[in-house]
Design a protein around this nucleic acid. Sequence first.
DNA 1: ATTCCACAGGAAGCGACGGCCC
DNA 2: GGGCCGTCGCTTCCTGTGGAAT
Length: 408
Amino acid sequence: MSSNKLFDEFLDAKPIFENKEVLRPSYTPEYLPHRDEQVSRLASILVAALRGESPSNILIYGKTGTGKTAAAKYVGKELEAKGEEVERACSVIYINCEVVDTQYRILAQIAQHFDQDVPMTGWPTDRVYEKFVEAVDRRHQVVTIMLDEIDQMIEKSGDDILYNLSRVNGELRRAKVSIIGISNDLRFTETLDPRVKSSLGEEEIIFPPYDASQLRDILEQRAGKAFFDNSLAEGTIPLCAAKAAKEHGDARRALDLLRVAGELAEQGDRAAVVDEKHVERAQNKIEMNCVVEAVKKLPCQTQAVLFATILLDESRGRKLTTGEVYETYRRVCQHIDMDVLTQRRVTDLISELDMLGILNVRVVSKGRYGRTKEISLSVPRDEIKSVLLDVYRLEPLRRFSLPKQSRF
DNA sequence: ATTCCACAGGAAGCGACGGCCC
DNA sequence: GGGCCGTCGCTTCCTGTGGAAT
């Protein structure tokens, strides 16, 4: 094929996406459908900042994809803008605690926001704290600190940072600080110091999951900007919404589905419209990605068990038993020079794979022939096999095959 | 009705490891 | 820094069991 033809083919295809970024989780829309209540609640609390008072601290709860971060960022942006308008300095600092996950780094981040020079590492924490206080207190202002994924950080580094932040107002002469904590986990305050808990949770806002029709509205709103006119089939958005509603009303999932469906249509099929078939395929693709990630992260022994199951599945073509899997697992381990665990342990590993949805396991009785687990794969065999073969420890298994006598 | 297979899965305990407290 | 505790991954030992075969 000549090279000019090669490109022509793709160039001619009518693009579907006008602006794909709109469908990404990082995008903050200027209106959040079905979040008016939460947004105005936030605004009613934060308005204190515009009067130069410090707003109550807020805790925001909700599962992934319920619009917590988007709502908080949106209100934060509006607050800063309004502050400028009425000449009250309001700063909003957004920190994702999954990335910035220690007391030191959070304080350093805030200090840097106010142009203080703090190295990313090296200083004692109390010196960073002083810099932070100095930076914030340099002028009359209300500083709102948003700590996203706060539950993750508490798990890793404790609640000292929250304690320090919540009492910093006592040291400030000009400025005032308020905190917004955003959490996926409804019960994370249980582990907090009671003092921190009461000061942080002065106000609590809950973001419930979206239902299918709300998800539809969200998708409609974004799709208008993301896609060119008439590039979505009628059933596409409702299907994405319905699928995501089943998964705890996760808007991020709904947007992912729509985006991936669009990509499949545009690149794979070079179709003019995104239809329901693309959504189905998008769902498979997304799920497949999750499974691949899960398999890669499995402990080595569990991967070996899974590999043994795959090999047997290839050669038997029927449901397997614990004994068969264990025997094969032993051979696999010997081939890659790995410790062989006991059968007792391996049955537990098999059960774990079942719980992860990678295997299908049922306990059945074969009468005279004993009681065993009936094991089958619930993921695509060949894809997962090649994923496993890319794992360093399992690499030598590329040249491994079952001994003949066990083929029967 | 009894036997007996091929395991399931509970109990206890062991060693390694990390966090914490004095 | 050393003693203590909880947790994790694992082994050892064990009792229990559904139902085809007898």
